[in-house]
Simulated scan of single mutants.
Amino acid sequence: MGRFEHYITVGRDRLRCGYTTGTCAAAAAGGAAELLLTGRLPATVRVDTPAGLPVEAELLEPSAGPGWAACAVRKDGGDDPDVTHGALIFARVEETGRPGVAVDGGEGVGRVTRPGLDQPVGAAAINRVPRQMIRAQVEKAASAAGYGGGLLVTISVPEGPRLAGKTFNPRLGIEGGISILGTSGIVRPMSEAALIDSVRLEIRLQRAAGARDLLVTPGNYGERFSREILGLGLSHWATCSNYIGEALDCAACEGFRTLLLVGHIGKLCKVAAGSMNTHSRVADGRRETLAAHTALAGGERETVAAVFQAVTTDGAVEALDRAGLRAPVMASLAEALGQQLQRRAGAEMETGAIFFSDRYGVLGKTPNADRLAALHPPAARKEGQPDPGPAGT
């Protein structure tokens, strides 16, 4: 079985994509279900990922017994291997007396111990999209075999406990192993030099096309929020990944008049603290920043502690809501964010920002944000032209 051969161009580099632990778990589950229900193990299993790219994964280390079967898929991180690259992701499928397909985690898959994550406390750290992918693969195998009973899928990663120590899982309250992740099913490689080149190229192309006012988002979340929630046009839009400072430098150098940054609070609160590269390997400080602004807004010690101890930024906002402090804390954060952006950009280019979360919507704006947003009106649709709908992943 050959490796996954899908490539993307990042800057001047041609980089090979890989596939996520979620895709591996889904492929292994589909293979194990077929082995259980037909007695045959295919050499490979095809998974149609949410990104629209099919993955043909090789099935390894099969085993079976009365009422159960198992096999594994090896994680392929492509040209951007993370700590799970090369790890074996196992799936065991067994018959049950309950209808439907249940999914759980076994050895090496972490358990959620704190609220605020993708899964509830006590659940295996297998995120929502991977769970959907696993069920889809197993249901497809059951349908093909004419099986109508219940099945339990248990995902395990023997190397998980060791690998988890190299991730943020212990800090997030995920204990005992790694998480099974992936919203697109595909790992897109990220070379820092190439990504920065790509950021600069996007901005220069916008300027060459005559744009004077630039809308910048770190990635897909900001782009979708800008278009679908804020109703902004994307004709003068560029992405910057984690490289906020590089984007500001390039836009100022190219002579843009204004730059509006739209991003998730989890990323932009780092910028408010002066971190212009927001990659988790370079900077975090989210809880420290939010706790500091809570104190500045007059928060009691108990509230500051609750914000500091929150697992996610949404959890911090929830703590602020309990104390009635969301508005002043977000205003304080927005002020600091605006100052940091303007300091980096210099006097020749006006900057502003809007930050949000999926749960709460818009959380804060710099004072000039609405005026800068008005410089990016949505493109007019001709009569009868269909709405383009959400962008692909």
Rank of each mutant, 00 (worst) to 15 (best):
A211D: 06
A142E: 13
S143G: 12
T20V: 02
R212T: 13
Q119R: 15
I8F: 01
G11P: 14
M276A: 13
L59Y: 12
L333N: 14
E61I: 01
V109I: 02
G285P: 02
G231N: 10
V329I: 08
L35C: 03
A72L: 07
A272Q: 10
L152T: 02
I196E: 04
N277M: 05
G160W: 00
C240F: 09
V55P: 12
E34Y: 05
P158G: 08
L232Y: 07
E288A: 15
V112Q: 00
R204C: 13
I155E: 08
P170H: 13
R40S: 09
V109W: 00
D13S: 13
A124E: 05
R74L: 06
G106T: 11
S184L: 08
D197M: 05
I174Y: 04
S226E: 10
R135N: 02
T23R: 00
R162D: 13
V187G: 14
E350D: 09
E348P: 04
V109K: 05
A292G: 13
S179T: 15
F256M: 03
G392I: 07
P99T: 11
L152F: 05
V304M: 09
Q119V: 11
C24W: 00
G274T: 11
M349G: 11
V307D: 15
R135E: 04
V83M: 00
E335A: 13
A334G: 14
A305Q: 10
T183F: 15
R128V: 03
D13H: 06
V216M: 12
G315R: 12
P377C: 11
R359T: 11
V47P: 06
P115M: 05
P54A: 14
V304Q: 10
L296P: 06
F256I: 01
G39W: 13
T312W: 13
R343V: 12
G65T: 10
W68M: 02
L260F: 02
P54D: 09
H376E: 11
A209V: 09
L337K: 09
V129P: 06
